[in-house]
């Protein structure tokens, strides 16, 4: 098959571009360690939330060392707990579920973002290296008060942390 020389170059450039796209995403996963939210958090029936060991009392829990777990219940139109406080240098795993409809949980301006689906537990692990304040918004329309549904994640210096 006779392919015009410019077409050959263009084909090579096109394939190189596809390789570039795949390579950057592979780097993001393998090199930078970016993960996707999956179904590893498991499931929970919304009517079992009040009696659940983890979500009955939404909270921040110190596991060990730098590891923390945060149990969050989203419901129209609040997050419980509304303000999550963790120390700097911590590795925090959020377990988030919904008591009613689909919500979102996003730390504004970051890649920390997941859908919160009733019946499902979204599990995301985040490393907070420096003190900072992040606003949290619900980014899935959930009803008339959706625009007021917000929370806060405060990363405080280690000596100021007064949590569990």
């Amino acid at each position: 098959m006779d392919i015009q020389k410019h077409e050959k170059l263009w084909l090579v450039a096109g394939v190189a571009f596809i390789v570039l796209l795949i390579a950057t995403v592979v780097y993001g996963t393998v090199g930078a360690g970016v993960s996707m939210v999956d179904d590893s958090g498991g499931t929970i029936a919304p009517d079992e939330i009040p009696d659940d060991d983890r979500f009955g009392e939404p909270r921040v829990e110190h596991v060990e060392g730098d590891e923390y777990e945060v149990y969050v219940v989203s419901r129209m139109f609040i997050f419980q707990p509304g303000t999550v406080e963790v120390p700097e240098g911590s590795t925090v795993t959020f377990y988030i579920t919904s008591a009613d409809v689909i919500h979102g949980y996003q730390l504004v301006g970051t890649n920390v973002n997941t859908m919160v689906i009733p019946g499902q537990i979204a599990e995301i692990t985040v490393e907070f290296d420096e003190p900072a304040e992040y606003g949290v918004v619900c980014n899935e329309y959930c009803g008339s008060g959706h625009h007021d549904m917000e929370g806060m994640v405060e990363v405080v210096p280690e000596d100021e942390w007064e949590g569990a």
Partner: peptide, 15 residues
Amino acid sequence: VYFVEFLGRGPTVVG
């Protein structure tokens, strides 16, 4: 977009 806007906006989901 990938390296500055996406990877540069930490923190990010790592697990």
